[in-house]
Design a binder for these strands. Structure first.
Lengths: 322, 322
DNA sequence: TTGAAAGCGCTAACAA
DNA sequence: TTGTTAGCGCTTTCAA
């Protein structure tokens, strides 16, 4: 691939002059500019981003670290981030931690090796010590997306509030005992429980960690059998919800008459399911854009600043399943 | 971030010696090695990948170009590619063309600017002139994934064969008129048609380009009304299939009695749908691994070679919807 | 076994 | 307006 030095030789000017032309400096004689541009076009010059990055500090690279890109929610998020970043001329290095903290740490190192200008991350567990320690070593701007991380810029949906909203929805729809499917340290569960407590229904809320199909079905069947009050199930994400829906069908439990189910993330499949799935919608595109905007602003105007703590509101989308 | 030169100063050796130590050369005195390693650890040295890439030609970066990361199939593919590449120490720059040829071309330029060691691409339309022209300019190894591209290494599933397989399946299940939902230049459609032609049923195969929900529903309703023979519908991917399933429910068409529907990609949701969706499974992980293996082999042992043309077989997964 | 010197492709001072 | 020089952090000769 042709370099500035080679173009300089071909056009009989100095290499920095070529640099000026190709970077759009106005202080070059029109005649030279034309000659250089023509030569660059002819040889399809593409600047060497590594050399540029080695020199100034701008690599125009952003590290994007997600937990599981094969989850539709994060895939959408990654897509929106990519689009937003690209608009400002940034490219993206993608990392998939797969919920493995060792990978996550490794990636935080890799990101530094490539001297990315900034990082957008979905931490596995933003409260863990090792995460915070690793973030401190990272000497580039970082914005947490989708999670509320202490002392960091973060753009996220308030899961506690969202969980409470779900609780209210299920109560309103007449469900009288409750199951949350997901991790017990999930903010959604905390909010869910708290809202139920306020109605004096705390002891009716149960948590089941997500697990293999067969186990899940067994746990679900046992819980459903334990009472015949209408059961409201809150799944930590739409994928879980889909599986629950299937399990309920197997168990011949009618939805939403005997049991209701609501998911989270409002992935596009929800509106086509049978029954159509109630869910909670996160403003993905907006989160992505705000996170990228914030990150780029920080990159382009460095300096100390108050960490941004920016909870967006989730929207409950009621459909047939509740 | 600390550099080799700084470590050299701190440990009173020359910078190249630091380089030797950190790259594991054996020709360094143990005592010096220890000193240097200790210093590097203490300051959490991370090599500058840009400087390394500027020097030798290895950037340990792979460009990955897909059409739509928010499609579960490509998300899975990207995930497997990332995993496979990472295993060999490569990182990934992700590009999402969104089926926009202008973006695709731009990305092929960006990829060159970052001097990636190789490219894995899902071309939008591998037969188009502009794609082929751009690929020619790309002077790094490239492997096409999921698509059969002329004169290029490619790892893909034989869509023509897969389409034929679907036709046979639908015939066998007793469907007697056929609809394909997707682009008319899709290899799946070609294979589908051809197989039907061989049974003298060519004129019973119709193609509908995928479109907005309302339009699709209208087109579907009209086609279903046009005859009361059992209708077999082949959707170009599972997302299309899900929408068709929903449309059929709206139209009160029973599945699979009056109409059958089969998708493509066998995304994980299929087995939980109601009814469970028949689909065609592509060996994603295997494709990703073979593509990455092939690419890395080419990168690490450069030279002329016969383009690899490696069709894998798809597997039909019959479920309740047919 | 180690160090000195050059150079990868570029930007940024500075001089002319 | 242009060219000269230096230097980013590293690898790679080549000498010592």
């Amino acid at each position: 691939m042709i370099t500035m030095t080679e173009i300089a030789k071909l056009t009989h000017v100095s290499q920095p002059t070529v640099s000026r032309v190709l970077n759009g400096s106005q202080t070059v004689a029109p005649e030279i500019r034309e000659r250089v541009l023509a030569c660059a076009r002819e040889h399809d010059y593409q600047f060497n981003a590594l050399a540029k990055g080695l020199q100034g500090s701008k690599t125009k690279l952003l590290g994007v670290l997600v937990t599981d890109i094969s989850n539709g929610f994060f895939a959408d998020l990654a897509k929106e981030i990519e689009t937003a970043a690209r608009k400002s001329g940034y490219s993206i290095i993608l990392f998939n931690s797969d919920y493995n903290p060792r990978s996550e740490q490794e990636y935080l190192d890799v990101v530094r090796r490539y001297r990315v200008d900034g990082v957008l991350a979905v931490p596995i567990r933003e409260t863990s010590g090792s995460w915070q320690e690793y973030v401190k070593k990272l000497d580039v701007p970082i914005v947490a997306v989708t999670r509320q991380a202490q002392g960091l810029d973060c753009v996220y949906v308030d899961h506690i509030q969202a969980g409470a909203m779900v609780a209210e929805h299920l109560l309103e729809r007449g469900f009288r005992r409750f199951l949350f499917i997901g991790k017990d340290y999930d903010g959604k569960y905390a909010g869910f429980r708290r809202a139920l407590e306020e109605k004096g229904m705390a002891e009716r809320a149960v948590n089941v960690v997500y697990q293999e199909d067969a186990q899940l079905n067994r746990a679900l069947a046992a819980w459903l059998r334990s009472s015949d009050q209408r059961a409201g199930i809150f799944a930590g994400n739409d994928i879980y919800a889909l599986r629950v829906l299937d399990a309920l069908r197997t168990l011949e439990v009618s939805v939403p008459e005997q049991a209701g189910i609501i998911g989270f993330d409002n992935t596009s499949m929800g509106r086509y399911l049978n029954p159509r799935l109630s869910s909670v919608s996160q403003p993905i595109a907006r989160m992505a854009r705000e996170a990228v905007d914030r990150l780029l602003d920080w990159i382009e105007h460095p300096g100390q600043r108050e960490p941004l703590n920016h909870p967006l509101s989730a929207v409950l989308v009621p459909r047939e399943s509740t």
